[in-house]
Amino acid sequence: MITSRRAFFTGATATALAAALAACSQDLPKNQTGTVAPTPQPVLDSERLTTILKRIQTGLDAADADKNADALTGYLTGPAARIRGEEYTLASAASDDSVVHTFTTDSQAGTVALAADFPRTVLTITDFAEDEQGYLLALTQDSARENYQLWGWTQLFAGVEIPSTYAPAIGTEQIAADDATDLKASPQEVLDAYVDALNNPDGDNGKLFADDILRQRIAAERGADLSEMGEVSVSAKAGADGFKSLRTADGGVITMTTLSFATEYKKTVAGSTLSLDGNVGALMGEDREVAGTATANYDVMIAFLIPAADAEANASALGMDLVLASVSRDDSQAPAEDDAD
Rank of each mutant, 00 (worst) to 15 (best):
G85T: 15
S272M: 06
A22W: 09
Q188S: 14
R222E: 06
T263N: 09
T105N: 02
A93W: 01
A63N: 05
G230F: 02
D212I: 02
T104V: 06
K207C: 00
L49P: 00
P38L: 09
V280P: 11
D204T: 10
W153E: 13
T33L: 15
D277C: 10
Q57K: 04
A340D: 14
T295K: 02
E47C: 00
A262Y: 02
D182K: 08
E161G: 06
A262G: 04
E161Y: 00
F243P: 04
D66G: 06
E173L: 05
D106N: 12
S272G: 04
A37E: 15
I2G: 05
A210Q: 02
L226F: 14
G152T: 01
V195Y: 07
V253R: 03
T111Y: 05
Y265T: 03
Y88Q: 10
A167K: 00
A37D: 06
D287H: 08
A262N: 11
L198Q: 04
L72P: 04
G152I: 02
A115K: 09
N279Q: 12
T77K: 10
D250E: 13
A167I: 06
R247I: 07
G74F: 03
D27A: 15
S46A: 12
D310N: 14
M284P: 08
F103E: 07
G134E: 04
E264D: 05
A12H: 14
A224G: 13
T165P: 06
I125S: 10
Q57L: 01
E337K: 15
A177F: 08
S227A: 14
L139R: 02
G203F: 11
A262M: 01
T126D: 12
A16M: 15
S164C: 03
A313R: 03
F118G: 10
A193T: 05
P163N: 10
P38Y: 12
I56E: 01
D331F: 00
R84K: 08
L198W: 00
A12V: 09
P42Y: 01
A22I: 14
S260K: 07
L28N: 15
P29D: 10
S316C: 00
V43R: 08
F8R: 13
T293Y: 03
